[in-house]
Design a protein around this nucleic acid. Structure first.
Lengths: 201, 201
DNA sequence: ACCTGGGCATGACACCTGTCATGGCCCTGC
DNA sequence: GCAGGGCCATGACAGGTGTCATGCCCAGGT
């Protein structure tokens, strides 16, 4: 019996994922949570073996949760199950310690199989996403550039970004300028969009 | 037998909504689509009586679909079923001709009841959303301001917005300035976010 | 030891933005 | 008719933004 924890902010989706998994004789959904920051504690309490994680969740993203699970509960496997597979997300997920990456709206059989493989210590990556991820290549952004670009995403003025990053305004503008150049954009907002869709931030 | 069309871009969600509805003896899901621009034709072909519409869909939004349904198939009722209920969405949905507005992750019984009421010609609005919608009040933005703000959402420079709206750059800046003032924001991006979350655009 | 590349900062320049004042046009309601 | 309000435009000004050159510090690799 493989013990599964399900994390997704939409109750409807949790239900839709849990139902077919519970029908499998060797799988058992032992916990469901709707927030990223509740996953680690719940996984510990429920002695889950595999965590299915959505990426977009309040509290913590699925990627951050995967990191914490690796650090705090190394025996638990993380499997990212997300709606839209942005290219670079796959790389970031695997770097964060996830054992697998799937998109939703796949037949339930595939999902169940993925859980079994992950539980057996294998890595599972959606084939389409894997090729797309390799095509896109690694992020051209440095860590700082990515960080600044993330802070710039909401359209805040440079002064605010600088304060939040504990940097001078000039440095922030340099990083943004570099990011704009590397992404081939001509505006912060455009650069942020490009980086976003490629999974670089 | 009430004939239902289900429109949502996530196959998983469509399945999760359809299953409990099909279990009701007087309801029948006769069609499912994943894009907004396929709804009208499919509704006509399948002779649907009630359309459950998600808001965020490729092609057309659920709000736009509701408008077209009212114009082209006036006997068909639209019921908006969305993930997050932004305050002003309710008003816009009803203005667009929708007969009801619900959030997902509600018990299936409620959804089925809503379908029956809508089919009977009644209006159905999620009570929480209804009060919240009334609290927020009507949009303070003029039509033009909302239009310009919508174009500004992606962070394009004013020159691009002006070209897309067939206006002078000065006029665009005036509208944006007005919108920024009315929303209490201090940046276009912030104004756009405020307008977005209040459903004013 | 040397060189390279990233992070940080400063200063300067051209350009873009947000704000305000002013004016003309059109429609609606009194 | 006439005032009011939305829409469009222009011009001017302060401040924000994108770009570039320059410099310093600190790791890592040759």
């Amino acid at each position: 019996m493989i013990r599964i924890l399900l994390a997704d902010d939409q109750a409807l989706v949790r239900g839709a994922l849990a139902a077919p998994l519970d029908l499998e004789t060797d799988l058992e959904v032992v916990a469901q949570v709707g927030r990223g920051d509740e996953v680690v504690a719940t996984a510990r309490a429920s002695q889950a073996e595999v965590c299915l994680l959505d990426i977009e969740m309040p509290g913590l993203t699925g990627l951050e949760v995967a990191e914490r699970l690796r650090a705090e509960l190394p025996t638990v496997r993380s499997l990212i199950v997300t709606t839209f597979g942005r290219p670079g997300y796959v790389r970031r997920a695997l770097d964060a310690g996830a054992a697998g990456f799937l998109v939703k709206d796949r037949p339930a059989r595939e999902l169940a199989d993925a859980v079994r493989r992950v539980h057996a210590g294998l890595r599972v990556v959606d084939p389409d996403l894997a090729t797309e991820s390799l095509m896109a290549g690694p992020s051209p952004l440095t860590a700082r550039e990515a960080e600044i670009l993330l802070l710039a995403m909401d359209g805040s003025p440079v002064a605010v970004i600088a304060a939040r990053a504990h940097l001078s305004v000039g440095t922030v503008r340099n990083h943004l300028s570099a990011a704009i150049g590397k992404t081939g954009a001509s505006t912060r907002a455009e650069a942020a969009r490009v980086a976003q869709t490629n999974g670089w931030i």
